[in-house]
Computed example of a mutant assay.
Amino acid sequence: MAAGTGSGPVDFRTAVAAQGKARVTAAVLDLDGTGQEPVVYGDDTPYDTASIVKVDILSAMLLHARDHRRDLTARESAEAEVMIRDSDNTAATALWRAIGGAPGLESANRRLGLTSTQGGPGGLWGLTRTTAADQIRLLRAIFGTGPTPLDAASRSRIGTLMTEIAADQSWGVSAAADSGWALKNGWLMRTTTGLWDINSIGRVTTGGHHYLVAVLSNGSTSMADGVNLVERAVRTAVSDAAAH
């Protein structure tokens, strides 16, 4: 099943029973393994982020604050918490403006090692475009053991919030976990097509190993179908990664 970094010989879409116009890509990195690059399942092409970009926005905000030698204000902290835990859009818009919109996000991402993420136009942060491999780069800056522009307090802050997701939003990469997870999901119905973008990123613990996982999808006919597709994809990808 492993496709290697980038597109591989296995039809991942068929393997996870994607229906109709649905597309899906997964990327997995075993933090306890020796590999430095994620294994990518499917074509690592750009997708809309929807609300998974909120992890990126918070990372950029924390870098911005540190650059100005300050902590987040009480208001910014409250916005960060509800943005991640509850996926609050008003808070995300406020912090998107605070980081300078797409240019601010992209500036932070260059420091974080992301190479294939383009900020959404104007205030449309949910239309930021990204790849599964780039989301692993972001997760590595938060959960990895190597050097990162994010200081230890920032990494802990983001990671902890990702373990406190509202109960009704705890689907996604958690489907592959047996003893712990940290995640952020995104969901968006595109008004131009009526089809759904459904995404999930995070860290899962299974079989004693810690995996960074990003699953991006679009083209599902309903949110429920998209969530089911993402969960099939994460279980398939993590199971395969664990077997190699």
Rank of each mutant, 00 (worst) to 15 (best):
R13N: 14
A177D: 02
L161N: 01
V227T: 13
D88R: 03
K184P: 07
L29W: 03
D32F: 01
G123Y: 06
A15S: 15
D48Q: 14
D168I: 09
L72N: 06
W96Q: 11
D56V: 08
A108C: 10
S51I: 11
G4K: 09
S107K: 15
H210T: 06
R203Q: 15
A166H: 08
V40Y: 07
D30G: 01
M83S: 10
I158H: 09
L216A: 07
A17W: 06
R155H: 04
V28A: 05
G226M: 14
L150D: 10
A141M: 12
A80M: 07
T192Q: 14
S87T: 08
M61T: 14
S51E: 05
G113F: 14
M223N: 06
A176P: 01
A167Q: 07
L183F: 00
T236A: 13
W196H: 14
N199S: 11
I52E: 01
A153H: 04
G172A: 08
E81F: 00
V10M: 03
K184I: 01
V16D: 05
D168A: 11
A243M: 03
Q36A: 12
G33R: 09
T221F: 02
S7M: 08
I201D: 10
R190Y: 06
G100M: 08
G119I: 08
G6M: 04
